[in-house]
Every structure is written in C-alpha cells, then in structure tokens.
Amino acid sequence: MDDVASRGMVLLGCGRMGSAMLKGWLDGGLNPRAVTVITPNPSDWLRETGVHVNAPLPADPAIVLLAVKPQKMDEALPQLKSLGNGNTVFLSVAAGITLARYEEILGAQTPIVRAMPNTPSAIGRGITGIVGNGHATQAHMDLAQSLLEAVGQVVRVADETQLRALTAISGCGPAYVFHLIETMAKAGEGAGLAPDVALQLARATVAGAGALAETASEDPAQLRINVTSPGGVTAEALRVLMDEETGFPPLLERAVAAAIKRDKELSA
C-alpha cells in the first residue's frame, strides 16, 4: 500500500462494489488524496470522502481499479489507455471480460489482474478470486490482493479458465443461498408457521449455520453428522435432500454446469 500512497490510484466507477472497496481502504488509513475517482454521477458520500473526483489522472498511478459494468467497459477504458504498457497494474472486477480483451484495449504489455468478487463484499464479508496475465508480477498480485482484502477473503486461481468455476460457486452462490432462504421460509409457511416467523427462522438458521461452518474446526460433512441423530427427524429430511437422483448433489451439479455454460457464451 506504500506504493499506492506515493504514486496514487485510480478508481473507474464507484457503484456499490467500488464504494464498498473505497470505504474499506479509507477506513484502513489510506489517504483520500491518493485516490482519483472517475464516475459520471458522484454521490454526496463520495464527495465528502476527500478523494479527487473526476480530476486529471495521476501520471503513473500504482493501480487502476476497473469497477464499471461490463457493458460499459469498451466505452470507459479508452480514456485510460495512456496508462497502459507501463508500470500501472489494472485490476478489474467486471465479469466476463477476458485478460486478452483488456490487453487489446490497453496494450499487450499492460499488467492486468482479473478479480471476481461476490455481493457480500458490500458488507465486508465477500470472497474474491483473482488471476493475473503474463505481465502481472508477484508484487502486482500482492497489491491487488491487499486492496481486495478490504472487502473480504481473497483466493488465487491457477489460470483464467478457473474463474468460470469460481464464478459459478462464489459469484453466483449468494443467489443460491438467498433462494434457499426463500424456499425454507415457504416450506415453513406450508407447515403452518406465520410468514414473518418462517422467514426469520430461515434467515437466522442459514446465517448461523454459515458462520458456524466458517469458524468450526470440523468440515461441513462432520458438522452435518453432528446435527443428525440416527433415525431422527433430521436424518429423514436429509434422506430426501441427499438423494443421488433428485436431491441437492445432482441439482447443484446441474446448476453449476449451467452457470459455467452461460459464462462461456457471454465471453464468446
């Protein structure tokens, strides 16, 4: 982060994800005057942070964070082309845009890191996968990771193709969990609970179980066994959920495969 403090950084786009990361950096002690934000509609909060907003770009920033929507990238990137093919690393959190495409726009010698965060990053509980191109050094990867850790955990994948699987698990995963909460609440209503009580039970159960799974020394399979008395009510429910043909395992396999297939189609 010393490099960012001395050379500065550029944040292109400051929506929900960009704002969450910026807040994490500033809360962590980053000087707001080291940050230049380029955004068409700056919020009152952004203006009050003390960062440079829509100001001239620093000559040689340590890093440029690309946080605009994927469909806006081709329109937004050309204004940063002068920073390509140099010492500035570009970090993108946009889905679906390949490293090769960024190299086409910014220059083949540009250090680029792709990142795939998920929506819990907005509350500092996310997890992000990262991968760099051939010009991204260990120092570039370390810098990208340190910045992304402001909003949660970071993992590095071996190559860009693995981002598809990561997207299908952690990028799309929050939607799977939200749907689980929906369906648990609906099942609770069907069993006679009041809607608000069923929803409260489903939300708290998923949140509590997730927190336990993250902090416990046992793996999820053992945690499941710990809750399941042989021949009991949980065991009977799991008999349905773990069915090899109709239960969770084949259903999630099909869901993940469908997500990966669609990601390939959108990247083509």
Rank of each mutant, 00 (worst) to 15 (best):
T39Y: 07
A34P: 09
P120V: 08
G29M: 07
G28S: 04
M116T: 06
N41M: 09
P56D: 00
G132C: 10
N41P: 00
I112F: 02
T36I: 10
T36V: 15
G84Q: 12
P32Q: 06
R47E: 09
V131I: 04
G129I: 13
V131A: 07
P40I: 13
I38M: 14
M116D: 05
K81D: 08
E104L: 04
I105Q: 09
T49E: 11
P78M: 13
M73K: 01
G86W: 01
G107Q: 03
D74Q: 12
T98W: 09
P111C: 03
G86E: 06
G129K: 07
R125T: 12
P61E: 11
I97L: 13
L65C: 12
A67G: 07
G86H: 03
N87H: 14
A139R: 12
F90S: 07
P58S: 02
A34W: 14
Q79A: 15
K72W: 02
I127Y: 06
A55V: 01
A122K: 09
V53M: 08
E103I: 02
I63P: 06
V68K: 03
A62Y: 01
A136P: 09
T49L: 12
G29R: 10
A76L: 09
A95D: 02
L66T: 02
A136W: 10
I127G: 02
K81Y: 10
A139F: 01
V53S: 05
L66P: 00
Y102E: 01
S121C: 15
A100P: 00
P70E: 01
V131H: 07
P42K: 08
L106H: 06
L106W: 06
L83G: 13
P56T: 00
A67N: 03
T36K: 04
L46A: 02
